[in-house]
C-alpha cells in the first residue's frame, strides 16, 4: 500500500466530511480568519491553505504559529472593516430561518434561563465579511428555531445599512445549506452521507427551500483524508490539542 492509501484506509468519519465540505466553501478566498472555539472551521481553513499553493492566507485566533497578526486582537476587526478578510465563521446557540444568530442565551435578557458565552465579534463581522459561514454541529429544533431569543447579529435586511458582508452558507452535522441573500432564505444544497432530507426537515424549526433532488455531500477522497489526518491534524493541534487527539482517534 502507498503511504497515502495506508493513512486513508479508514473510511471518512463525520468530522472529516465536515472539514472537507467547509474547505470547499472557502475555495478561492485570499484571507480566511477563524475565531475562538472553532476547531473544525480551523482545520478546514488550514486544509484550504494547504491545497491553495500559497493563494489562501489563514489567521487562526488563539494560535501562535498560524496567526501573523502583530497589532493585537483589534487587527482582525480593522482588516474586516477594510474588506481584507474574505471568509469567517460564526456559530450560534440559536439560528433562525432569516439567518439571525444568537450567541447570548435562551429566555429573556438579561436573566436568561440558559446563558452562553456572549456575542464575541459577531455583531460586527456579520456585517463586514463577505463570506460568513455559519457552523453548528448540533442539528436540532432547539438550535434551528423559528425566531432567535436574542439577536447577536442579524441576517440581511432591506434597511440601507452598510453591509458588504453576511451569511454565505450553514453547515451542520446533517447537511449543508446555502443562504440566498436576495430571498433571505436557506436553500438545502446537500445532505451528509448516512442522513436524509426527512431527517433534516424533522430537526429544523424553520422553513427552507428544498430542490426536488438533493445530492449527498461528497466525502473526502484518499488524498484529502491523508491531508486531514496528517498535516492538518498536526497544524490544528497546536491550538486545539484535545480536538486533534479526537480526530486521530476517529
Amino acid at each position: 500500500m502507498s503511504a497515502v492509501a495506508e493513512v486513508a484506509a479508514r473510511a471518512a468519519g463525520p468530522t472529516e466530511v465536515l472539514i472537507h465540505s467547509i474547505a470547499g466553501l472557502l475555495a478561492g478566498s485570499r484571507h480566511v480568519a477563524v475565531g475562538a472555539s472553532s476547531p473544525i472551521p480551523g482545520a478546514a481553513a488550514l486544509y484550504t491553505r494547504a491545497v491553495s499553493e500559497g493563494a489562501t492566507r489563514v489567521s487562526v485566533l488563539g494560535s501562535r504559529r498560524h496567526n501573523a497578526f502583530t497589532n493585537g486582537g483589534v487587527e482582525l476587526f480593522d482588516l474586516a472593516a477594510q474588506g481584507r478578510i474574505d471568509a469567517f465563521f460564526l456559530g450560534g446557540g440559536q439560528i433562525d430561518g432569516a439567518a439571525n444568530i444568537n450567541l447570548v442565551g435562551v429566555g429573556s435578557y438579561p436573566q436568561m434561563e440558559v446563558r452562553w458565552p456572549g456575542s464575541f465579534g459577531s455583531a460586527y463581522l456579520y456585517y463586514l465579511v463577505p463570506r460568513v459561514i455559519l457552523f453548528r454541529e448540533e442539528h436540532t429544533r432547539r438550535v434551528f428555531v423559528p425566531k432567535v431569543d436574542f439577536v447577536s447579529a442579524p441576517g440581511p435586511r432591506d434597511d440601507g445599512i452598510y453591509r458588504p458582508g453576511g451569511p454565505h452558507a450553514l453547515i451542520t452535522s446533517l447537511c449543508l445549506f446555502d443562504f440566498d441573500r436576495a430571498r433571505k432564505r436557506f436553500v438545502l444544497r446537500s445532505v451528509h452521507p448516512g442522513h436524509t432530507v426527512e431527517e433534516v426537515r424533522d430537526n429544523t424549526g424553520f422553513d427552507f427551500d428544498c430542490p426536488a433532488q438533493v445530492p449527498a455531500t461528497p466525502a473526502p477522497d484518499a488524498a484529502a483524508l491523508a491531508l486531514i489526518r496528517g498535516q492538518v491534524r498536526e497544524e490544528i493541534g497546536e491550538t486545539y490539542p484535545k480536538f486533534a487527539a479526537q480526530l486521530a482517534a476517529v
Binding site: S37, G105, R115, P117, S119, A123, Y124
Partner: peptide, 27 residues
C-alpha cells in the same frame, strides 16, 4: 474555551447578581 462554559458567570447571570453590559469584541 475547550473546557466548557463558565459556571460562576452562568450562575450570576441567572440570579441577576451582576450587572451585565454585553458588548461585541471590536466595541
Amino acid at each position: 474555551g475547550e473546557f466548557g462554559l463558565a459556571p460562576c458567570f452562568s450562575r450570576a447571570v441567572k440570579s441577576g447578581s451582576i450587572k451585565l453590559k454585553d458588548a461585541t469584541c471590536p466595541a
